[in-house]
C-alpha cells in the first residue's frame, strides 16, 4: 500500500503517456492519433506537476502572511507545465487544421490508405 501511496501520481502519469503512445502507434484514424497525442501531452504534464509536489503542501502564493514557505510546493514545474500546455494546444490546433485539409483532399482520415508519398 505504501508503494501506491508513494508512486500513485507517477503511475497515473505514465499510464496516460503509455496509453497515448499506444494509440499513436497502433491506430490508423488521424483523429484518434491526434487524441492519442493529446492524452500523451496530458500525461507528461501530470508527471511534471507531480515531480514538484510536496506532501501536504500548499500553492506557492503568499496571499496571507501566516502561510509558511516551507510547506509550499515547487513553483518551477507549474511554470513549465503552463508552457507545455500552451505548446500542446498549439500543436493540437495545427494538427486539426491539417486533418480538415487532409480529409478534403483524400476523402478519408485513414492513414493506411493515404500513402502517396513513399520510400
Amino acid at each position: 500500500m505504501s508503494f501506491l501511496n508513494h508512486y500513485i501520481y507517477y503511475i497515473g502519469a505514465f499510464g496516460l503517456i503509455f496509453i497515448g503512445l499506444y494509440i499513436v502507434l497502433v491506430k490508423h484514424n488521424l483523429i484518434k492519433v491526434i487524441i492519442g497525442l493529446s492524452i500523451m501531452e496530458t500525461g507528461v504534464n501530470l508527471f511534471l506537476i507531480s515531480i514538484g509536489y510536496i506532501k501536504g503542501g500548499t500553492a506557492p502564493i503568499f496571499s496571507t502572511p501566516e502561510i509558511e514557505a516551507a510547506r509550499m510546493v515547487d513553483p518551477v514545474p507549474q511554470a513549465l507545465v503552463l508552457t507545455a500546455i500552451v505548446i500542446g494546444v498549439a500543436v493540437l490546433a495545427l494538427a486539426l487544421s491539417l486533418a480538415i485539409r487532409l480529409y478534403q483532399h483524400y476523402g478519408t482520415l485513414n492513414l493506411r490508405k493515404i500513402k502517396e508519398q513513399r520510400w
Binding site: A95, L98, L102, I114
Partner: peptide
C-alpha cells in the same frame, strides 16, 4: 504537402 506535414507533425 498536407500528407507530409501530417506525418511530420505526428
Amino acid at each position: 504537402g498536407i500528407e507530409s506535414a501530417v506525418k511530420y507533425l505526428i
